[in-house]
């Protein structure tokens, strides 16, 4: 897919974040996100990838620079998925997915269709009345994704969402996430420290380095979607993984 043909959604302009004099979490980060992009932020821990995500989500104000949104972005414009599923344990799956609407003072009845559709998309329509504790780690993560999708957000931010899951579940969720994206055409910014995951999922990878946190290289993954298991075993996948690993190695040495 060609980036230029898609409208610009938001742009990070020389964004920097300094926590104290000697801790520079992020420096001079430029990043353009087009509608429909799947961008991975890849780097070692401490490279500011989570900080970048927090700045985009509005949780943290940048010290310098700005996040320039090209579209209006009110409540529900951003969906988030954290490393943990982060569900409300005291209520059911469907009520968890309803939460973003509830915070907009919209009743469950009014939004029941959206909630059901979202749960169907992640394959959990038979578990609407379950409590989070009754679900496996992978299923909880699916609920979390359903909640992020339910408001039909402009962009979905994912902060190492599958890092705590076993590899088999992670592969399955990777495949399903790509399928979801095919269906919905959503824009995703995905933080990960896995080279393989970033290559498999994204069409662009921003490789970041630590101390100070910054983007040192942007790599395009010019492989057409849909990508399935065959892509995981293809030679081009191997080549891109090697290139990305080398970029990451460079980032670690820096």
């Amino acid at each position: 897919m060609n980036n230029d043909s898609r409208p610009l959604l938001l742009e990070l302009k020389k964004v920097g974040k300094t926590f104290s004099e000697d801790i520079v979490a992020l420096r001079d980060m430029d990043l353009k996100i087009h509608s429909g992009d799947f961008i991975s932020l890849l780097g070692p821990s401490g490279c500011g990838k989570s900080t970048a995500l927090r700045i985009i989500s509005g949780l943290t104000e940048p010290t310098v620079g700005e996040v320039d949104w090209k579209v209006s972005h009110g409540s529900g414009a951003i969906g988030v998925v954290f490393q943990e599923a982060t569900l409300l344990p005291w209520t059911t799956v469907e009520k968890n997915v309803w939460l973003p609407f509830r915070l907009q003072n919209k009743s469950f009845k009014e939004k029941k269709d959206e909630v059901e559709r979202s749960l169907e998309l992640v394959g959990l329509k038979d578990f609407t009345k379950s409590y989070p504790r009754e679900l496996s780690g992978g299923m909880k993560m699916r609920v979390s994704i359903a909640r992020a999708l339910v408001t039909d957000p402009k962009v979905i931010l994912m902060d190492e969402p599958f890092a705590a899951l076993d590899e088999i579940t992670r592969f399955k969720l990777n495949n399903d996430l790509l399928a979801l994206r095919e269906t919905l055409g959503c824009t995703i910014i995905f933080v990960t420290h896995s080279v393989f995951e970033s290559v498999f999922l994204s069409d662009r990878i921003a490789v970041m380095a630590a101390r100070p946190g910054r983007v040192i290289q942007e790599l395009g993954v010019d492989e057409p979607y849909p990508r399935g298991e065959s892509f995981r075993t293809s030679s081009s996948y191997g080549v891109i993984c090697r290139n990305t690993s080398e970029a990451l190695k460079l980032a670690m040495e820096n």
Partner: peptide
């Protein structure tokens, strides 16, 4: 309160009252 849930509420623009009622009290 789980700090990720707190962040989630903030991202969805929850006000102080909603945060208290739907997150802190439970």
């Amino acid at each position: 309160v789980d700090h990720n849930l707190k962040d989630l509420f903030k991202i969805y623009g929850a006000n102080r009252w909603q945060k208290l009622l739907h997150l802190q009290i439970p």
